[in-house]
Simulated scan of single mutants.
Amino acid sequence: MRSVKNKTWLHATGIIILFILIGTSIYGYSFYKSLTKSIETMHQPIDREKSVKRQEEITLTKKDPFSVLVLGVDEREGDRGRSDTIIVLTVNPNLNSVKILSIPRDTRTEIIGHSTVDKINHAYAFGGVEMSIATVESFLDIPIDYFIQINMEGFTEIINSVGGVTVNNDLEFTNVDQHFPKGEITLNGEQALSFSRMRYEDPRGDFGRQLRQRQIIQAVLKKGASISSLANYKEIFQALGNNIKTNLKFEEMIDIQKNYRTAVKTVEQSSINGSGTKIDSIYYFIVPDEEKERVQAEMKEHLK
């Protein structure tokens, strides 16, 4: 399924840059000071050698294809949490395209560095971002160059900072005390979190929940990039700094925004086929070997 509407996913690698392009001339020094402070807070280097899956360092100024692991984490006080949203983006400016792959959180696979076979989202609980990257690299057999971690528990702060978001809901449901009618709805932070977490009333199960989470994140990026939202830029930057972590450096964000704009001309969403089963009374999503090989080949081809 292809749609240029999904180009906002590329901006997940450089959302702050959108504010630079739109608002620096408007807000001047105060804007830039808030911006750089937010980026410093967001930046999180990882304790990890160069990926064994990549033979040479990528060079963004040369428009090398690259990959990004997006983790949506329910992170509560005193608990690292699990990465309940796992999305891999591959960006290829030479093909003018972006591929988006959602990995079901219950996917059964080897957890690299933990010597166990478990649900893929447990990698984050066991070893944080580093173990998540290593596990996803092994599962897809591709290098992961960058990561973006979004704290879903604190995502309400981001949503409220941009004045709420609007999504198109394709399934009427009630979650706890919140009712969500079918059609276009506007949500505040608390409502959006409830909207994105529901899965038991959805016949699509976790796939439906993944869809709603993508809708919320896309809506936030779209709203945050609008000029009308920039009146609250200090609040927005603070919310981003509090709830987003990435190993992308400021200069790398600049390079991506400068050299990879054409990559959003074609955006393709990919999914992984499989089936659910219980092993020792625990539910897992099982991906057949032939399906895994198909997905790996597709991602490798896109990264060249």
Rank of each mutant, 00 (worst) to 15 (best):
M1L: 11
K5N: 15
K7I: 15
L10Q: 11
T13I: 09
T13W: 00
G14F: 12
I15Y: 02
T24M: 08
S25P: 07
Y27N: 08
G28D: 05
G28S: 06
F31R: 02
T36V: 14
E40R: 13
T41Y: 07
M42Q: 06
P45I: 04
P45W: 07
D47M: 09
R48N: 06
E49A: 12
S51I: 05
K53W: 15
K53G: 00
Q55F: 10
E57G: 10
T59S: 14
T59R: 14
K63A: 12
F66S: 05
F66A: 03
V68Q: 05
V70A: 11
L71P: 00
D74Y: 00
D74P: 00
E77G: 03
G78W: 04
S83Y: 04
T85H: 00
V91L: 01
L95N: 11
S97I: 03
I100K: 09
L101A: 11
S102F: 07
P104Y: 04
R105V: 07
R105K: 09
T107A: 14
T107L: 11
E110T: 13
I111N: 01
H114Q: 15
V117H: 08
D118N: 15
K119H: 09
H122T: 02
A123H: 08
A123V: 07
F126Y: 15
G127Q: 05
V129S: 07
V129F: 11
E130R: 08
E130H: 06
A134T: 05
V136S: 04
F139G: 01
I144A: 02
D145E: 06
Q149R: 15
G154R: 05
F155L: 13
T156A: 08
S161M: 04
V167E: 07
V167K: 13
N169R: 09
F173L: 13
F173H: 13
F173G: 04
H179F: 14
F180K: 09
K182T: 12
K182F: 10
I185L: 09
I185C: 06
L187Q: 06
N188I: 02
N188V: 03
E190T: 07
A192L: 02
M198G: 02
E201G: 14
D206V: 04
D206M: 05
G208L: 01
L211D: 14
R212W: 12
Q215K: 12
K223N: 05
G224N: 09
A225I: 01
A225W: 00
N232F: 10
K234R: 14
E235Y: 03
F237G: 05
F237V: 06
Q238S: 15
A239E: 12
A239G: 08
L240S: 08
L240M: 15
N243M: 07
K245W: 02
K245C: 06
K245Q: 14
E252I: 01
I254H: 01
I256S: 02
K258H: 10
K265P: 01
K265N: 15
E268M: 07
S270A: 13
S271N: 13
S271Y: 12
G276N: 13
G276L: 08
T277C: 05
I279C: 05
S281M: 10
I282T: 15
Y283D: 02
Y283M: 06
Y284P: 05
Y284A: 04
F285Y: 15
F285N: 09
P288H: 06
D289E: 13
E291G: 00
R294S: 10
V295C: 00
A297K: 15
A297D: 11
M299E: 01
K300C: 07
H302E: 09
